[in-house]
Structure formats: structure tokens, C-alpha cells
Design a binder for these strands. Structure first.
Lengths: 332, 332
DNA sequence: ATGAAAGCGCTAACAT
DNA sequence: ATGTTAGCGCTTTCAT
């Protein structure tokens, strides 16, 4: 079945193809009668504009990209990604853009792939989840000229970033643990590259703990369930278990809970455990998880709006960090 | 910065633009010397073909679509979606296609959106997760002429489906529960529409239970954590708790575990709990979850290969159901 | 083995 | 208010 083109509609309505185009693009100075005739021809022929032709002629790209890290199933299946993807897709579609996906890693090939898609006009911009992005990679990407908005990353302008008030969230969390009598806090987070919010949260953690006069330590962990479990097991094996373990995300907190169960530790009796994100499933853990809620979906929508503005040549204002909130449940 | 076109490369190499095109598309009858010259011009000018122009001229679409259900965070954040999306993306990119995403629901708008994208030549085909697809929706989609491959759905040809051996998996699972002394099994699954694998698994469940001579019942649940929790709570409230609860997926099993904890039931002592999927996080539940592993990623790759073949005008053979395997852990 | 001409479906610029 | 001409960047067809 060969689909109708502008010309077919024009012939059917007895006007020039340009008039049809004008009607479609809402141009002024079209006689109502003509407009009516064109519109009825359009629906009679079930005409739909060819986006490829439009894109070529207008020299603009109608696909944007969502890039995130993770090849292993554990990282891939982080609910975080899904929520963000859904929000980005909805926002992009609402503005007439399609959203493609890219999965990055720390090798050269995945970045090269993204660059190819940019140079071939397949994608016009990208929202990148920054949590695992390394400084060198960021520099490469910016050197291409691709419009990029970073989620969960904090870099000075001219970078475009959307982030949450992790500093405030961490301060509230530490205060909560201390108010419950905890005096020896361990935070599991990746070491973090320049601009990473992990770095910022770690700093906020130490500041807050120091202000409260309690012991604070940092344990390295790469966001996975396994990392949370390992952290607790190693601290326990070293005979230096803290009285509160702060997971840098809900997955690591889940792993920590699991390790506590296996070691026969009671939570929160022997060890308080908290997370960061507030994903759905943490209400179904045992015990239910105390965590910091981060408005990932709203942040993603803002990032997409920002990207679309950039793509349209605007210079949108940097959004303020999004407020987070402490959700107290049973684990801490 | 304006990017190089075929003409620019041609001028730089001192040949016609057509010759450059021939070199790029690996046409025969190009003198090695010419070819060399063209290639060096290409890299000198950092030329990259414009996909929009190519797509227009070749009248083909280079973007495929991944469509799945779910607007609520619980469904959205099912790890299932992520694993499948990553596999589909990798396979699509490997074949030179981009992958867009669509989120469907049971309203008319989301399907209309998909249809628009098809008619506007934005997407050339789709892989759809069938678990929540209704018969009426499926009929609408097929009426368009869009190439579609269904994941986790079972419809007779000419539908294209990729599925797993759920029947065999269910039989093995029931046999396992019975071998551990269970005599009263409850399965939580949606009621399921025509072609849904939920329907097939439910049938297999009753057949297997009957063959073993044990009691079997079906409880309605919509794949969410909340549904699993509700199932256990309601059975318990009714004073007719089974001795094994089979979650139709890992999320519902997780919810069931949570309910058991809150009701003070020991697992697997008072109640055995099993899942279906084998996602990463079920190893971190307490107790660890006995489940049936489904090779979602491999199935997704096969679905994408199938779709790409369809898009290329081939008539690929229907793949056999993928084998599943019982993973015994602590919960059953 | 290479070049010239035509046109995919659309919009921008100009003419009427 | 509408029609005509030109061309986005590429590939297909046909000449040379």
C-alpha cells in the first residue's frame, strides 16, 4: 500500500501542494473554504506527513537520546532507569520528539556509537545519567557539540545539569540516625569522579556527622546489591561494625539488609540501615526501608524540557536542585 | 559548524558525488586508486552520511520501537522491562537500527500515538510485550500493517511471537512444591486475555496439580508487589491459607514474602513462596527466593532479529519456546 | 569505471 | 490568497 503524499492531497483538493503545506503548518492567509477542502482531502486520503522528508528539508532532527550506564543485569535492572526513561519518553513525545536509548560503558566503543548517531543526524541531543560518567568521557562528549543535559551530575556552566538537593537530604538523614542514638555511621558510595553527586553526598555526610560529633566512615560500593552486601560483611568480618549503615542508593541498602539477615544481625536493633531513592519495592523489604525520596521522574521531565529548549536554540535557565524528603520506615 | 556532504567530499576528491556514494555503499567497479582518494577525502572532511536523506531516498525507516505497558511506578520499574530494553537496543543497534520506546495503556490515545508514528514513517516496526495486551488492541494494531513481534504472548500465525516454555516451567515448579510435601497450592496471576501466557500458565498449573492429586487454586493479581501482598493477606484473613503460594512473577512473590513477614508466618515453614523470572534482587530477599528462570534477554534478542527480518521483507521461521529452569533457593 | 540527470516528500522564497 | 521554482542529501537509472 503506497501512502498519500502532499501532491496527492493537492490534486484531490484541486490546489497546489504548497497550499496543503500551508494548511498543515497553520500558516495565515488561507481562505476558510480552501482550508476546509484541503482538510477533508487529507482525511479522505488518510494523509500523514512523512517525517523523514520534513526532517531533511528542515535540517532538524526529531529524535533525542537517553543514555545511561550499565551492561550487567544488576545495574540494568535498577528501577531508577525505568522511571527516568518513562518520564523522558512521555515528555519527549509530548513535544513531538522520539526518544532513542543508548547504553554506555567505560570503553571507547559505546561513546563512539553515540557520536556516530549524532554526526549522522540520527539524534539531536541527549539526556545522560551522570552517576557513572567519568570526567574524560564528559570532555569527549562536550567536544562534539552535541546538546547534552546531565541528570544527577553537578558541573559548572556551560554544562547543563539537573540535580536534587542531595546535600540537604544527606544532612537530614544523618540527623535522623543521630536522633535515634546512632554514633557510628558508615556510608556506602562509589568513590566518584569530578562532578559526581556521590562526591557531593560524601562530603555532606562527613560534614553533617562531624557537626553532630559522631564517627563517620566511607566504604566503597558501586551501586549494586552485591556492593551493599559486601560492605556489611566486610565491616562485620573486621569486627568494626557501625551502628548505622547508609546505603548510597536503595539497591545497596537492600544488599546490606540481606547481609544483616545472613549474619544474624537484627535490623534496626544491631544495625540501622537506610537507603536513598525510595523505590517502590523498598516498602516490601523486611524490615521496610527508611530512605530519602528523590523525585527522579520530575527531574527527568525537567531535563527533557531543558534539552528540547537547547535543541531549539534557546538558552534555558539552570533549574534549582530538586527538594528531597526523608521517609522514615522500620529499618532505621 | 556546517557538516560535509557527499558533494563536498566529491569536490575534495575530484570525482562526482555519485562515485563517492558508490564507494560508501561498497559498489563494485571502482578503481582502487579512486576508492583510496575518496576514502581519504571522507576522513579529511570528517564526513558522515545524513541518515534522514538516506531514509527519504531509500523509503525505509531506520527506527524500530519497543512498546510495553505500565504507567504506574510499580509496573514501570519492573526489572523485566529493563533487561528486555537493553537486549533489544543492543540487537537493534548492531543491525543499524535505532530503538524508540512507547508506553502503552488500555486507553485509545496510546495506541493512536503508536499508529501516528507508524504512518509518519517514524517507526518501521515494533516489539511489544504482550503480557497486558488485550485482544481488541492486538486486532487494531495488526489492522494497520505495522510489523510487530510479540514477546510473551502466544497467538497463532500470522502473528509473530517469541515465548518461553512456561508450561514446562510451571510443571517443574508444581512438582517441586509437591516433592517438598506441599498439598495446597495457590497461584497468583492475572486472569489474562486471549493469547496471554498467563492463561497458559494457569492451565498448566491446574493440570500439573491435578496430576499430582493436590489442591490448586487461582488468585487474581496484576503483576505488582501490592497484588502479591494482598493475595497472602486475603487468603490468611479467610482462614484458608495454602501451604504454597506461587507468584506469577518475582514481584508478586516479593509482595507475598512481605505479607508473610507482617503476618508472622514463617517461610517456608508455614508457607512456601516461589516466583517466576529470576531477577537479580530475589537473591537478596529474606529468605532468598525459589523461582523459575526465564531467559528474557535472549528472547528479546530473538524478537528483535525476527522484527528486523520482517522489516527487510523476509518471512522468518517461528522460534521454538525458550527453555526455562527451576532455581531452588530458600523460600520453597 | 565514472558522470549526469532525476526525484524521494517536504518547506522556504519568491512571484502572482 | 495561492501557485511556481528550487533544493535539503542522498540513491537509482541511464549515459558515457
Amino acid at each position: 500500500m503506497t501512502r498519500a503524499t502532499l501532491k496527492d492531497v493537492a490534486a484531490h483538493a484541486g490546489v497546489s501542494h504548497q497550499t496543503v503545506s500551508n494548511v498543515l503548518n497553520g500558516h495565515p492567509s488561507i481562505r476558510p473554504a480552501t482550508r476546509e477542502r484541503v482538510l477533508s482531502s487529507i482525511s479522505a486520503l488518510d494523509y500523514h506527513p512523512n517525517q523523514a522528508a520534513k526532517a531533511l528539508r528542515e535540517a532538524r532532527v526529531t529524535t533525542l537520546c537517553f543514555a545511561s550506564f550499565g551492561h550487567d543485569p544488576d545495574t540494568l535492572s535498577d528501577p531508577y532507569r525505568n522511571l527516568i526513561q518513562a518520564a523522558l519518553t512521555a515528555e519527549a513525545n509530548a513535544h513531538g520528539y522520539s526518544l532513542a536509548t543508548a547504553f554506555l560503558d567505560h570503553g571507547a566503543a559505546s561513546l563512539e556509537d553515540l557520536r556516530q548517531r549524532y554526526l549522522q543526524r540520527v539524534i539531536g541531543g541527549a539526556v545522560i545519567i551522570g552517576t557513572q560518567l567519568r570526567a574524560a568521557q564528559w570532555e569527549r562528549i562536550t567536544s562534539w557539540g552535541l546538546n547534552v543535559v546531565l541528570l544527577d551530575h553537578l558541573l559548572p556552566a556551560p554544562a547543563h545539569t539537573v540535580s536534587a538537593d542531595y546535600r540537604g537530604g544527606m544532612a537530614a538523614l544523618v540527623a535522623h540516625h543521630v536522633s535515634r542514638g546512632r554514633r557510628d555511621l558508615a556510608l556506602v558510595l562509589p568513590t566518584g569522579d569530578y562532578g559526581s553527586t556521590a562526591m557531593m553526598r560524601r562530603d555532606a555526610f562527613f560534614e553533617a556527622a562531624q557537626a553532630c560529633g559522631v564517627r563517620a566512615r566511607h566504604v566503597d560500593g558501586d551501586w549494586t546489591y552485591a556492593a551493599g552486601e559486601r560492605a556489611v560483611r566486610e565491616l562485620h568480618a573486621a569486627g568494626d561494625l557501625p551502628d548505622a549503615l547508609l546505603g548510597g542508593n536503595d539497591r545497596m541498602a537492600t544488599g546490606a539488609l540481606s547481609a544483616a539477615h545472613r549474619l544474624g544481625l537484627s535490623v534496626p536493633g544491631d544495625l540501622a540501615v537506610s537507603g536513598f531513592d525510595d523505590f517502590d519495592f523498598v516498602q516490601y523489604l523486611h524490615p521496610t526501608l527508611t530512605t530519602v525520596r528523590v523525585p527522579h521522574a520530575e527531574m527527568a521531565r525537567e531535563a527533557m524540557r531543558h534539552l528540547i529548549a537547547l535543541t531549539g536554540g534557546e538558552a534555558p535557565q539552570a533549574p534549582a536542585p530538586y527538594p528531597v524528603s526523608l521517609i522514615v520506615r522500620d529499618s532505621a
